[in-house]
């Protein structure tokens, strides 16, 4: 843990969230707080509702009950692009890159919200658009350097191996310079080395830019290592919330989660 990093006030607050699909209750009355600069992990068995929770936070799913507030913007239902405007970025459990585009273009889309030329200026290109492109390209190149993917910049993402795709997806999210980063199983399907790289990126992002991070992860070792706080979901209910040590000692968690999966 970085000693310089200080955890701030609550910036994300979810209150009494309930979400169901037809008859399936994905989330039942869940409340959680995330503090500024924190790395918060959400864990739980398959189907516990972890991804659904992230989807509620950034407006992809709309809960039937409850509300979410981020940095004082309260809402019970918001569209994903509004969440983006408030500084929330994310990656997906099943990689959601733009398959037909290069790595560079994928990450450039992450800067879309910060680009302001209109389509007529873009049709002319020379002038405002070109300046804007170059300015943002510079920023994107920094991210490419940071993630060490310089040599694949022009490769169509569809041709990349899984681990690199995950990395590019992180890059796309980082390009938006988010204040809150949601990562849905960023290390799933990776080998040990790739996991270590990814952990380092996550810690570095948190450290250097102070980005608050909520991540879902199945690898307990990783979770205990990098998170400040762990929230445990089971069958759509929250059964644990605290420091890694507290959660590890929580009998409910042991029974419901650790007990079943090991």
């Amino acid at each position: 843990m970085n000693p310089h990093r200080k955890i701030g006030d609550v910036i994300l607050k979810a209150e009494n969230i309930s979400l169901s699909f037809g008859g399936v209750k994905a989330l039942t009355n869940i409340s959680l707080d995330v503090r500024e600069h924190e790395i918060c992990a959400i864990i739980g068995p398959n189907g516990a509702g972890k991804s659904s929770m992230l989807n509620v936070i950034n407006g992809v799913y709309h809960p039937q009950e409850g509300r979410v507030s981020y940095k004082g913007h309260v809402r019970d239902s918001m569209h994903a692009h509004e969440a983006a405007r408030h500084g929330i970025a994310r990656t997906f459990q099943n990689i959601a890159l733009f398959k037909g585009m290069s790595v560079l273009d994928n990450i450039m889309t992450g800067r879309n919200l910060k680009m302001h030329t209109n389509f007529l200026q873009q049709a002319l290109y020379w002038g405002a658009t070109q300046r804007e492109e170059i300015r943002h390209r510079r920023k994107v190149e920094e991210i490419i350097d940071f993630l060490q993917i310089e040599n694949i910049r022009k490769t169509p993402v569809g041709r990349l191996p899984y681990g690199l795709q995950k990395r590019v997806e992180l890059g796309r999210a980082l390009a938006a310079e988010p204040t809150l980063l949601l990562l849905d199983e960023p290390m799933a399907g990776m080998n040990v080395e790739e996991k270590q790289d990814m952990c380092r990126f996550i810690l570095d992002v948190n450290d250097e830019f102070g980005t608050t991070i909520v991540l879902i992860e199945h690898d307990m070792g990783v979770v205990m290592d990098i998170s400040d706080r762990v929230i445990v979901l089971d069958y759509g209910k929250k059964i644990g919330d605290g420091s890694p040590e507290e959660v590890r000692a929580n009998p409910d968690v042991i029974a419901a989660y650790l007990g079943t999966s090991h």
Binding site: A80, H81, A96, F98, G100, N112, Q122, E133
Partner: peptide
Amino acid sequence: NMVRSSLGRSWMAVRDMDVAAEVIG
């Protein structure tokens, strides 16, 4: 010119994965 600037990237993003495009803003 349009397809090589942000409008073109937005189009392709919507084409390839509209949920992700929306999440990006």
